[in-house]
């Protein structure tokens, strides 16, 4: 394809604009990181800056010194993310496969029941009652795990759509003729052929588990079971209460600005590191999420 002059000009224009956009996207991350290694006094007096006068690793030293606590929170987050994601994908796969079959009677009722949960919810108090008085998940790892198991029924719809459009129904039919059971068809046809979409859903679920802080806020008070996001939240809010009541039980319990920035950075670091490997799954998930159902 020969490019016209006009096309070339447009390409250059597009490249320049996108470089600027990328800068806007990345800049806040850089600022966050720099402020985490800025010396506290410099930060308070000179303000946030990309080129601070004085650098200091005090915040990271502090994190390293309290690594027990922070690594435990990390371990909790990682554990919950891995288990939660696995269970989520399993649940989604199991419900999406039958729904992807055009022959299933009552399909639209089930579809409706799924979609309904996206729009209606009973509110926090009743949900809390059920989880604490019937299931007693308070202060257990289940509290971080269970409320998000099907955090978005929408994922089931995405998977259903993918399976319907990407797995030829002849495959199922011939398997049926061979006498394969539904479970076997699921395991040997739907699961392998749907792998891309399952990975995508897993990536979204993992992200959701990793960034979740609300369940901890409502259900967990045992500091040993904090996730990394909850720890971040607890630290910042403790400062607000402290100023209100004017007492600190132990000195030095106020984390500095730099420390908070450092922990924020540490909390998102793993995601940023694996992000390049996940991009294509994100993209796939988003794309599939909005194709017709």
């Amino acid at each position: 394809m020969i490019k016209s002059k006009q096309d070339k000009r447009f390409e250059v224009f597009a490249s320049v604009v996108m470089v600027i956009v990328m800068f806007i996207i990345i800049f806040p991350f850089v600022l966050l990181f720099i402020s985490s290694i800025t010396e506290e006094k410099t930060l308070l007096i000179n303000g946030y800056s990309i080129f601070p006068e004085k650098l200091s690793l005090a915040a990271y030293e502090y994190i390293w010194n309290s690594r027990d606590v922070i690594f435990r929170a990390y371990a909790t987050t990682v554990g919950v993310t891995v288990i939660g994601t696995t269970l989520h994908v399993l649940l989604v796969a199991l419900v999406a496969y039958p729904l992807s079959l055009r022959r299933l009677p009552g399909k639209s009722v089930f579809n409706f029941l799924l979609l309904f949960t996206i729009l209606f919810n009973g509110g926090l108090v009743p949900t809390y009652m059920i989880y604490t008085t019937v299931f007693h998940i308070k202060d257990t790892y289940f509290a971080l795990l269970v409320p998000n198991l099907l955090f978005s029924s929408f994922n089931a719809i995405i998977v259903r759509t993918y399976l319907r459009t990407n797995v030829p129904s002849e495959l199922y039919e011939s398997a049926k003729i061979d006498g394969a059971s539904e479970f076997r068809i699921f395991r040997e046809i739907a699961l392998p052929l749907g792998k891309p979409i399952f990975v995508t859903v897993a990536v979204f679920a993992g992200l959701n588990y990793w960034n979740d802080w609300t369940n901890g806020l409502y259900y967990v008070s045992d500091s040993a079971k904090y996730s990394i996001q909850q720890m971040l939240n607890v630290m910042v809010k403790n400062i607000q209460y402290l100023t209100q009541f004017g007492r600190a039980p132990t000195s030095g319990s106020i984390p500095s600005v730099g420390l908070r920035m450092a922990i924020a950075f540490v909390a998102m670091l793993p995601i940023l590191i694996i992000y390049p490997f996940l991009t294509k799954y994100f993209e796939k998930g988003i794309t599939l999420g909005s194709v017709k159902g």
């Binding site: 649940l91 309904f116 949960t117 919810n121």
Partner: peptide, 12 residues
């Protein structure tokens, strides 16, 4: 799961 997590609380 949906029944417990989403439908039961609807009574609220």
């Amino acid at each position: 799961y949906l029944f417990i997590n989403n439908y039961l609380p609807l009574s609220g």
